[in-house]
């Protein structure tokens, strides 16, 4: 339960982090809160040669309200979001999601950027932020770019980052005041990674409706048929959700079919009730 040897450097700014990550040909990793990388290294599932700490960079701690969205620095912790220490643009959805991630002692150090870069299928932010239509701001050797989250997470633990890229912020669209959301996480014990996650954002004023299923074997899944149902104002029962998943070829084992359908229908009920 002890990590393999690695070298460590603390970046002084974003450019320095990108330079350090590209400075050797080895397996180099940015370090955020270490709340996922730490366990992976302790279990020796990850054995980086060089770890570059980015957690304390000012640029990653910045939160900026920009036209139509909030840019949340990648180094913002789950507990800062849980406590409402950043501006509210999602009608309470991000606070609700943050409070259910792991335990307070993990939320105090784990970051939103680390969670998105790690891309654990069972983690909360990849599904919740995808439902919100968020984008990822990235800086790297070729300069800065912005990628929609839907194009960022490619598979389980696989994202569109080059070796020397770092995530600098998550750009979260501002919901209209009347927008509604639902989020339903199924896990056996509070703070555990999910067995299933249903996430719904319904914002008719912006003509934006998204229904996303998380905790599958891969990247979070948009369920377009259910988004149409939500737009139409109809209720979605468990069997409707099962049918919608089957129709788009998302078939799991019996337990998976059941809990995913339950998570989706409860998330939708929550959104319509809110």
């Amino acid at each position: 339960m002890k990590p393999a040897r690695f070298d460590y450097a603390r970046a002084s700014d974003v450019a320095d982090a990108v330079r350090l990550l590209g400075s050797t040909d080895g397996f180099n990793k940015p370090l955020g809160g270490g709340m996922s990388l730490g366990p992976m290294m302790n279990l020796r599932l990850a054995q980086p040669d060089l770890v570059v700490e980015v957690r304390r960079l000012d640029a990653l701690k910045t939160v900026a309200e920009e036209d139509g969205h909030l840019a949340v620095g990648a180094g913002i912790t789950h507990s800062a979001i849980e406590d409402g220490r950043i501006p509210e643009v999602t009608n309470g959805m991000m606070r609700f999601v943050a409070g259910q991630i792991a335990y307070r002692a993990v939320r105090n150090r784990g970051t939103i950027g680390g969670s998105i870069a790690h891309a654990d299928p069972a983690a909360d932010w990849p599904t919740a932020l995808r439902a919100l239509g968020a984008e990822v701001a990235i800086d790297g050797p070729d300069g800065a770019r912005i990628v929609p989250l839907a194009d960022f997470q490619l598979a389980a633990f696989t994202v569109a980052l080059e070796p020397a890229d770092i995530v600098t912020a998550l750009r979260v669209p501002r919901l209209s005041p009347a927008a509604r959301w639902g989020y339903y996480k199924i896990c056996r014990k509070p703070g555990e990674f999910a067995d299933s996650i249903g996430a719904v954002v319904h914002d008719p004023e912006r003509d934006f409706t998204n229904v996303v299923l998380g905790a599958t074997d891969g990247a979070p899944l948009d369920v377009a048929a259910l988004a149409e149902a939500v737009k139409g104002g109809g209720t979605v029962e468990i069997d409707d959700a099962k049918a919608a998943l089957a129709a788009q070829g998302a078939v799991f084992d019996d337990y998976g079919n059941q809990i995913h359908a339950v998570a989706l229908s409860r998330a939708i009920k929550g959104a319509l009730a809110s």
Binding site: P39, E53, R104, A105, N108, R109
Partner: peptide, 11 residues
């Protein structure tokens, strides 16, 4: 409060 088992001393 934080976890000291997955926080490295260098951090």
């Amino acid at each position: 409060p934080m976890r000291s088992c997955i926080t490295y001393a260098v951090s």
